[in-house]
Write a protein that binds this DNA or RNA. Structure first.
Lengths: 130, 130
DNA sequence: ATAGTATTTAGACTTAGTATAAATTTAATT
DNA sequence: AATTAAATTTATACTAAGTCTAAATACTAT
């Protein structure tokens, strides 16, 4: 991974993801590209998503669904998924460092990173009548 | 999900998973069944895994790999994956309740559950020469 | 014994993603 | 500006993991 090589396709895909309010899957990204008048090969989209992820320009989210989702926010954060409607929101509070230290001590691992996915019911689904 | 219906196949699969020290995938479970002289249909294994998971007798782990893994430990716990060798260990410390409360407050969700997967380097991989 | 429900089986199918080889684009060198 | 080399895109075949379906089998309750 030397210097950045943003081809037209990669740039277009990066722009699209950065402009998203949500966290689209690869399939959704392809659909939106088509809507915007772009038609890239299947493999190019996957290739670009990998490239952009490796370059640290986007994040790949594994939320326990069958497909990965992509996120234009690159700062460290987590996610919460609504069981009812499937909506995904950002969680900006990090797990307490004290807890991470405890886990490292107990498991004898060097802990580099943690993926956290909360599950629950979102505000709209809590008040379905409103 | 009324009362428990443990067929021969389901019981065999449950026993196998409970006897595992590790966290096998569906494919690994099929392989081990075959080794033990059982030959169940492909779909039966998946069906049973779902049934046992829904019944709360085993846990389905989504560790960010392409395949789910299964765990005979049903008490609440988390996992840590070694980046180098892929080994998966149990993490028995729960995330601090205070943090969960904070997340619920900030996101406006009712938080029911959290999946946490730590990534790091295990003890053996830290000392490769030993 | 018989009808009705649930489960297993075998195999087709789906989804998400990877691999490959040819064509194209880009960059570097002369 | 022409030529070579490297990287990328394209089209398409393929793989992995799991779901779906219809027929066969097993279990349950009269």
């Amino acid at each position: 991974m030397s210097r950045l090589n943003l081809t037209t396709q990669r740039k277009t895909i990066l722009d699209l993801i950065q402009s998203c309010e949500d966290h689209p899957t690869a399939a959704e990204i392809m659909e939106r590209l088509r809507t915007n008048g772009h038609q890239f090969a299947y493999g190019t989209v996957y290739n670009s998503l990998r490239y952009l992820t490796d370059a640290g320009l986007i994040r790949e989210l594994k939320l326990g669904e069958t497909a990965c989702r992509y996120d234009g926010r690159t700062e460290d954060h987590y996610h919460i998924v609504c069981k009812k409607c499937g909506r995904v929101d950002e969680v900006l509070s990090a797990p307490p460092a004290e807890w991470i230290r405890e886990v490292a001590a107990k498991t004898n691992y060097d802990v580099h990173h943690s993926q956290v996915v909360f599950e629950g019911v979102c505000n709209s689904c809590k008040h379905p009548n409103a």
